[in-house]
Design a protein around this nucleic acid. Structure first.
Length: 592
RNA sequence: GCCGAGGUAGCUCAACGGUAGAGCAAUCGCUUCGUAAGCGAUAGGUUGUGGGUUCGAAUCCCAUCCUCGGCUCCA
């Protein structure tokens, strides 16, 4: 068969195609083992995925972690037989007869949706209905690790059978497998839920409710550093900040259509003097109220309203995840009210702004996804086409790499989503830029054009960070809790060697605070090694140590988080240099 | 919401039908010390919550809340 993939030559990195073929082959062998060890198990599908593969099974047996080790061991044993993967073209009827005879109802169901002939792939004792993409034989299957068991719906449909999915990964070399498992370990160490607690950033309480975040002093310091930074960026970019209520009458959401289309995600109604009110699930209708409070000329557009808007959405309990997916969150939201002819330049500005903002946080690898008109859409086709051309042009001019998701847009307009790649190579969806032709019509949001007539505005919904919650979650994992100076909740920890230095320590702290730095002082009667250990675990970027020799010489000894040392600095110099490092948002320590 | 695994001191965990323990943290005392853990003592728990089984429940059963791995969804 032509779709047999060769393993990479030694010393060359494997192609995507080769990895997929290896992992897909692993999925077949895993299915073979599972049916061998757990008779009666029905097979469904088992594709390769980004970092491995899975296979979904329908089985009476509940797979456990211990089963995984057994299955893995047996897989390797079978693979050693160097069994060839044989592809064979069969007719649909032959195939159906084959699977029906074995009671494989899922395979029969898949067949119903295929046309023409199909292929069966056989290795050793196992045959699967499969379009191919395998290694020549099982000899490449040597470095495999089964990772977890999870539930998954057949066809991803929650109304269908719940299957058991076994995830695994495989590589062509031991080193690559080890490197991947190390990366998983590293990701675990960076888990923002763990670090958030260890570093005292935030907490979530059963008594308050799932998905509702409490920001502690240190988390608040971090968040405020980001808020302040973005506020000044946006004000320079021509945005005006607004603030809107956290609850609104249902009337508002009837008009916007949220109540009809979005009510599953909204908190229930509160009765206020006989009228139903809702916690706000998004800020746009409120911004529209502000826009509509007076008549606007075409000359005034674009008008850009920004709000750090806190919204509440009733996410299903199973999807909540630390800061990444919560029920109450604050978006760095904005709505741009503009004319059709302004779309392209607004989008271009937005992309440039996003690029600059992400650069300041140390994210340089960005990918955009342009989503175009879906089947069910609202608004004139001509307007859609025009807008998509403008989005494409803006993306083309931005220098950002982008992919197109045909038909992936919202019903009310096309959109651009932005993903960033973090320090250990994971992608996160953050920014979103959505054009909206519909809401302006629902609310009658118009401007007076040059000929004195009325024209609907185009709204651009956009968030650059997404939400402070998710973005800070991403940041924690990106930096592994070791924030650059400008973001660190505590930037300098001043510590005295003995209480003879306490006064000098307080004076130093005062000087540093006067320079705008966030400072803590440790005057405890503890050995300096103990204080340093604690400050290191707290991931404080700079420790300023004062002992008798320092005080006598009128200087301070500075230790950086990584253990390197700068001695003999004058207090004023230290304050000025750290303030400068924070001001320039340096991602690396500059004190040397 | 669904499938699976969990919830024991502030944290990490032990005890798995028979008196709830340890380390770290906390508090108190001693220690005044030069770059990742000084010493001792004390205190700390209706075992997530509510029911049930049992002579006896952290342990078994039911319900419920929350957490974790996923599905689906999403900022």
């Amino acid at each position: 068969m032509s779709d047999i993939i060769s393993p990479p030559k030694p010393g060359t990195p494997p192609t995507r195609e080769a990895l997929d073929a290896l992992r897909h082959s692993c999925a077949h062998v895993m299915a073979q083992v599972v049916q061998e060890l757990f008779p009666g198990t029905k097979i469904t599908i088992g594709p390769p995925i980004d970092n491995g593969f899975y296979y979904d099974f329908d089985s009476e047996h509940r797979f456990t972690e211990e089963d995984l080790a057994r299955i893995e061991a047996r897989m390797l044993e079978i693979a050693k037989g160097d069994h060839v993967f044989n592809g064979k073209v069969v007719t649909k009827d032959e195939s159906r007869a084959y699977w029906a005879a074995r009671g494989e109802k899922y395979k029969v169901e898949i067949l119903d949706e295929l046309t023409g002939t199909v292929t069966h792939y056989t290795h050793d004792t196992f045959t699967d209905l499969c379009r191919g993409g395998h290694m020549a034989d099982t000899s490449s299957i040597r470095f495999v690790k089964l990772l977890s068991v999870a539930g998954a719906y057949w066809r991803g449909d929650e109304k269908r059978e719940m299957l058991q999915r076994i995830y695994g990964t495989a590589f062509f070399s031991k080193d690559e497998l080890k490197a991947y498992l190390r990366q998983l370990e590293e990701a675990k160490k960076r888990d923002h839920r763990r670090l958030g607690e260890d570093l005292g950033l935030f907490s979530i309480h059963q008594m308050v409710g799932a998905g509702l975040v409490h920001w502690h002093p240190k988390g608040t310091a971090l968040r405020r550093a980001i808020e302040e930074y973005l506020r000044s960026k946006l004000e320079c970019g021509g945005y005006s900040f607004v603030m809107t209520p956290h609850v609104s009458s249902e009337e508002l959401y009837k008009t916007s259509g949220h109540l009809q289309n979005y009510s599953d995600l909204m908190y229930g109604a509160m009765d206020i003097e006989g009228n139903p009110f809702r916690a706000k699930p998004m800020n746009c209708p409120n911004h529209i109220m502000i826009f509509k409070s007076k008549l606007h000329s075409y000359r005034e557009l674009p008008i850009r309203y920004a709000e750090y808007g806190t919204v509440y959405r009733f996410e299903r309990s199973g999807v909540l995840h630390g800061l990444m997916r919560v029920r109450g969150f604050t978006q760095d939201d904005a709505h741009i009210f503009c004319r059709v002819d302004q779309i392209e330049s607004e989008i271009a500005d937005l992309l440039a702004l996003a690029k600059a903002v992400y650069g300041d946080f140390g994210f340089t690898d960005l990918t955009c996804y342009l989503s175009t008109r879906p089947e069910k859409s609202s608004g004139e086709a001509e307007l859609w086409d025009k807008a998509i051309v403008m989005l494409r042009d803006a993306l083309g001019g931005s220098g950002l790499k982008f992919e197109v998701d045909e038909g992936g847009g919202a019903f009310y307009g096309p959109k651009i989503d932005l993903k960033v790649r973090d320090a250990i190579g994971r992608e996160w969806q953050v920014a979103t830029i959505q054009l909206d032709f519909v809401l302006p019509r629902k609310f009658g949001v118009k401007y007076r054009d040059s000929s004195g007539g009325e024209e609907f505005v185009v709204m651009i919904h956009r968030a650059i960070l997404g939400s402070f919650e998710r973005f800070i979650g991403v940041l924690i994992e990106h930096y592994g809790g070791k924030f650059p100076l400008w973001l660190a909740p505590v930037q300098v920890k001043v510590m005295s060697l003995t209480d003879a230095q306490n006064e000098a320590a307080e004076a130093l702290a005062k000087a540093l605070r006067a320079a705008g730095l966030r400072v803590e002082v440790d005057l405890r009667v503890e050995k300096i090694g103990h204080k340093i250990r604690e400050a290191t675990l707290e991931k404080v970027p700079y420790m300023a140590v004062l002992g008798p020799r320092d005080v006598e010489a009128g200087v301070v000894s500075v230790r950086r988080q990584d253990g390197t040392q700068v001695n003999g600095l004058k207090a004023e110099d230290l304050a000025a240099r750290l303030a400068e490092e924070a001001r320039t948002k340096s991602l690396v320590p500059t004190l040397a």
